[in-house]
Write a protein that binds this DNA or RNA. Structure first.
Length: 450
DNA sequence: GCGATCAGCT
DNA sequence: CACAGCTGATCGC
């Protein structure tokens, strides 16, 4: 997850000073020798977003006057029963509610400093800002929309560096011109403009990577992208042997209220529920919800445990096939009737929608059990106790929210940071408001004490 | 006519 | 709450 909502970024514009921008070069890249001071200024001032937006904040006020509209999703198309309708929909004329006339959006959105790597002309996950002056290499940490946003067929602003799997998805799903894409094998040191760059497995979604930069002067910077910290990560030679001077950290769950179990525990829980349900009612259709990529292990675990194949629509099958994982590819099947385990978009995981879906398999299945894996199915009181999770049931439809997270929990973050002992930390998530930034800053200070 | 983008929503 | 989008409307070519 990332913060990039303009209205959020605008919040702090009334309290600006020049402490950050002083340490930026003419293109807004933090200069090499001031890497320390620019991040400390970031923490001390907490509110300096001078490198972000400078336009007026008016637009956010007049936004909320649109009527809610009924939407008519073609479920059969989404589920793969039907080809997309190519006939044009009727377009009704509407009164313009636009308030920021005259300002092209890219002019108003400037790449924030925490996406720029000091002492280099590199940026990370910064495609939605159009051409970034002074940027010669655009790194992409993983293939999730809020990170690749801005990339499309017409991209021509510069070289894109990412893992080979992410590169395939860029070509396949976004038709990005391959001449701009430079796949970087994991765990191999690549020399890019004199900087030694290594991609490390991020334990997030397929293809997600931490990016490790070793500059010519020996300084090491680690950008986590989105990641779930693990013990295994600590044994990586690059992290075990080199001091990290600057850590760009995925702070999605940087708050102790976020407690969730290990992935393994959640997988065991899901499998247990699936088995119990099938034992009671053998004619149960099992659904796992998923976004574009990620959470594959949830349905792989069920597939393995029950010895059944995995059905999903053609477009998702194409994406999953592209991973090149035999243990996944071999289990996919194109006919829903051939397996009781189906994958649907998370948006389908509502009782009403699932009922319709079950109706399309009325001859095969009588009940439906669905899992909604998200990171924020947490509870302060439940904590780690999976057995206290209660599903929501309506008729023969049962939905479990399960805390399968592909981001680090608060305590995993703490352990990772205390292992790494970086000189400085730059949070990359939840930085849109000052209270959050201050809170995270105080956690960092606490962690770094000893 | 189509792809890209935006606001609103979950 | 916030994940990682989804959707319909609008904009731009």
């Amino acid at each position: 997850m990332e913060n990039f909502r303009e209205d959020e970024l605008l919040l702090d514009n009334n309290n600006m000073n020049d402490s950050v921008s002083e340490n930026l070069d003419e293109n807004g890249f933090p200069s090499l020798d001031s890497a320390k001071s620019f991040s400390s200024d970031f923490y001390s001032s907490g509110t300096n977003w001078s490198c972000l937006v400078t336009e007026n904040a008016e637009s956010s006020e007049e936004k909320k006057k649109k009527n809610k509209k009924m939407k008519q999703t073609d479920l059969f198309q989404m589920w793969g029963f039907k080809k997309p309708d190519t006939s044009s929909a009727s377009t009704s004329k509407k009164i313009q509610m636009k308030t920021d006339v005259g300002f092209p959006s890219q002019q108003r959105r400037v790449c924030p400093f925490y996406k720029k790597i000091p002492g280099t002309s590199f940026t990370v996950d910064a495609f939605r800002f159009g051409l970034i002056e002074g940027c010669s290499a655009y790194f992409l940490s993983h293939f999730h929309y809020d990170h690749y946003g801005g990339l499309s067929k017409g991209w021509s602003h510069g070289s894109i560096y990412c893992t080979p799997l992410t590169a395939r998805l860029l070509r396949m799903c976004l038709s990005v011109n391959p001449t701009f894409i430079y796949p970087l094998e994991l765990d191999v040191e690549h020399n890019i403009e004199g900087v030694k760059v290594t991609m490390l497995e991020a334990n997030h979604c397929p293809g997600a990577a931490l990016t490790h930069f070793r500059l010519i002067d020996g300084r090491c910077y680690l950008h986590t992208g989105d990641f779930r910290a693990s013990k295994l990560m600590q044994s990586h030679p690059l992290l075990a042997s080199h001091r990290v001077n600057l850590l760009y950290l995925d702070t999605t769950y940087c708050n102790p209220k976020y407690r969730f179990p290990s992935k393994q525990d959640v997988l065991h829980f899901v499998v247990k529920i699936a088995r119990q349900t099938l034992k009671k009612q053998p004619k149960t259709l099992i659904i796992v919800g998923a976004y574009s990529i990620g959470k594959e292990c949830v349905y792989l675990a069920i597939s393995d445990a029950l010895g059944v194949k995995i059905h999903t629509n053609a477009s998702r099958r194409r994406v999953l096939q592209s991973f090149g994982w035999p243990e996944l590819s071999g289990k996919l099947c194109s006919h829903g009737k051939d397996t009781p385990l189906h994958i649907l978009p998370l948006s389908s995981l509502r009782h009403e929608t699932l009922k319709k879906y079950l109706d399309t398999f009325a001859y095969e299945y009588t009940t439906l059990l669905a899992f909604r894996p998200t990171g924020w199915t947490y509870s302060e009181t439940l904590g780690n106790q999976l057995d206290l999770i209660r599903p929501t049931s309506k008729g023969n439809i049962t939905i479990y929210g399960v805390p399968y997270s592909e981001h680090s929990s608060f305590f995993e973050l703490r352990e990772f940071v205390q292992f790494l002992k970086p000189d400085k930390i730059i949070p990359t998530v939840n930085v849109g408001n000052a209270a959050n930034r201050d809170k995270m800053q105080s956690y960092f200070r606490e962690w770094m004490k000893s």
